[in-house]
Amino acid sequence: MTSSTPRLEALTPKNLDAALGIRVRPEQEFAVAPVVKSLAEAYVHPEAWPRLILDGDRAVGFVMAFFDIDWYENGTALRSGLWRLNIADGEQGRGYGRFAVDSVAAEIRHRGGKELYVTWHPGDHGPENFYLRLGFRPNGEVVEGETVGVLELG
């Protein structure tokens, strides 16, 4: 597990380089965009919520959520969820991913949401089993080759 209590921190000029230094395992790179792409997307999408995951002073991951986006771009489905989750190579298996998902779930609940959405690439080194263990269930949708999963927040 973690060596101290992990926390999320908003991106600032002071921690930007630490965020940009987050790298997943090489065999996982097909399944998640690098942090630099996420930050570029956050710059142009006001619904993005990028956060650095810290354990003490050590950057261990990056998470980016979205809130109330128009999923189909026609006004029929506003959704909130997990846009990106990058846990650094060497830091996986220590509870940081679960912490990040729980933190996003708490923020969605705080904003009145009842569901947390995520998409994942299928594949041997992808995150599907991680999300299924956390309780996400495929909802039958596939977006750009990715499985759509939802977690009921109750």
Rank of each mutant, 00 (worst) to 15 (best):
A59R: 08
Y117M: 09
F66E: 11
E144M: 13
S3P: 05
A105V: 00
T2M: 12
S38L: 05
A40Q: 14
G113T: 04
L16F: 06
R133D: 13
G135C: 07
V104P: 01
L134S: 00
L78K: 14
E115K: 13
A33R: 10
R7K: 15
N86D: 13
R79G: 03
G135W: 09
G140D: 11
N74Y: 04
L11T: 07
A31L: 02
G56N: 07
P6M: 05
A48W: 10
A77H: 14
R94M: 11
L151E: 03
A33F: 02
E152D: 15
G154R: 14
A42K: 11
A59D: 10
N74P: 04
A65H: 03
L153F: 04
S3I: 14
T119R: 06
A42N: 11
A65R: 05
H45G: 00
A10S: 15
E146M: 12
E115L: 12
G93C: 08
L116H: 11
G145H: 11
S103T: 12
I22L: 11
G56E: 10
A19E: 01
D70L: 06
V118N: 10
T76M: 10
A48M: 15
V24L: 08
G112Q: 01
P122H: 00
F66D: 08
D102F: 01
E107H: 10
L151C: 09
P138H: 01
E152V: 13
T147F: 10
D57I: 00
V143T: 11
Q92I: 02
E29T: 13
R94P: 07
P46T: 06
W120G: 00
P34F: 00
G95S: 05
F99H: 03
A40C: 05
G81S: 10
P127C: 03
V24R: 07
L11H: 04
Q28L: 10
G145S: 11
P34M: 00
A88V: 05
G97E: 04
N86T: 00
G97I: 00
I69F: 05
G154P: 08
R111S: 02
